[in-house]
Design a protein around this nucleic acid. Sequence first.
DNA 1: CGCATACGCGCC
DNA 2: AAACGGCGCGTTTGCG
Length: 488
Amino acid sequence: MLLDFNLKQILKELKAKGKPLPKEYLDLGLAFWLINPDEKDYSPENLSRRYLHEGFDPLAGGFSKLFQFAEKKLKGYKLEKLFHEVEMPLVEILADMELAGIKLDLKHLKDLDKKLEKQLTELAKDVYKKTKNTFNLNSPKQLGDILFNKLKIDLGGVKKTRGGAISTDVDTLLTIKDRHPVVPLILEYRELFKLHSTYVRPLQELADANGRVHTTYIQTGTATGRLSSQNPNLQNIPAVGEWAKEVRKAFIAEKGFKLAALDYSQIELRILASLSSDPNMMEAFNNDVDIHKLTASQVFKVPLEKVTPDMRRLAKTLNFGVSYGMGANAFAKTSGLSVAEAKKFIQDYFANFKKVREWQEETKAQARQQGFVTNLNGRRRLTLEASSMYSREAGEAERAAINMPVQGLAADILKMAMVKIQEEFKGNKDVRLLLTIHDELLFEIKENKVLEAVKEIKKIMESAYELEVPIRVEAKTGVNWGELTNLK
DNA sequence: CGCATACGCGCC
DNA sequence: AAACGGCGCGTTTGCG
């Protein structure tokens, strides 16, 4: 039995050298992450410091002693199954995904790069002209000074930052966009600069000799059970808007292959329906009704046919917000309603989904009383601040507490599906899992195998876990990530 | 000079 | 005045 930290890295190195993998291995960092996922650092040095007060010196006894210590805790917390059957098998899967990487259309990126640079130069020039000033457009401080001190734009409705400065974020710029002709230019500059500096430019630099980029997944990177991705982060590639589409078009399939994206439809809301056993919400999913539309019809008290796109959009915000514990203030801000109206909508929402509120209240009580919450698989997270005397702190912990069982189970379901998919397609060179984006898996599949493989993957994903409502997966395919089309 | 922080923003 | 859960990253700015 090989016990170590960073086993993914070890496996990657062995694979790269064509050497055989150890028969049995366990990752200690992962074990300790399951025990307490809120630690930032899962190195042996830090764990030693962290657990010293329990009369234990991990470094003294070596990794074997350390694992004995972890094993006891995993057992006590009923986390062994998650550890041995989900997280550990995932290590090699992630290693393979990282080694595979995803192919980039470097020519497309270069063209995009040029277009963005040209646009940015023009926009900046225009901004300097309209403000009669030359300054660093990327400095919120300088920008705020120009907009509100030099141009004396009205401050009505403009908020302050944490540090007390006048905010220049998108929300602020949108509220003042009709107060001065330069503001829309700044909004556009912001959008394009972000795309260029965060995506288009770095991606080109990170591509290997075959034009593929290799992310690194951090398996101990979140407190809820999700994965995170870094260097580059391929879980936050732009998805909305025309420019975003151009960026996504740069992610392509190898010659002879196609990309296939399979994503869980409304997985978190399905989980919420299931956990709360809310009859109303369960019925929607059992009957395959559009949940946002249904919510709209109930909150607005109109028949389904009378739901307008605006009503649906509002209901969608409500549906998402509720699982995060959103209050009237935040809902008002994101929906454009007044706080009073927002409050009313949230009330109506919970009147319709009574059991959802009950479940949330029970979970918050648990968080306060036991100091931790768990999801259906035993995945746990400490919630010590839930009983804080500071209401802001307690509120934050409560919101995290009601979110974790939902987000954490969604993460588990995806991970369990990944493990099953790997078992099914082990050694199959025609089907490669490339990326995971929380509720979505992106594959590269040999052209003539796409239909067959996608059908099988979809089946596995939809049956990876049994909820009280059906789980649905949508599949899309195409030659690049920006132009995928539905596959049914 | 390097480093940490503030700010802002991309995704689910 | 008042944070909506989970992340990673680029740029600016101020500090040692």
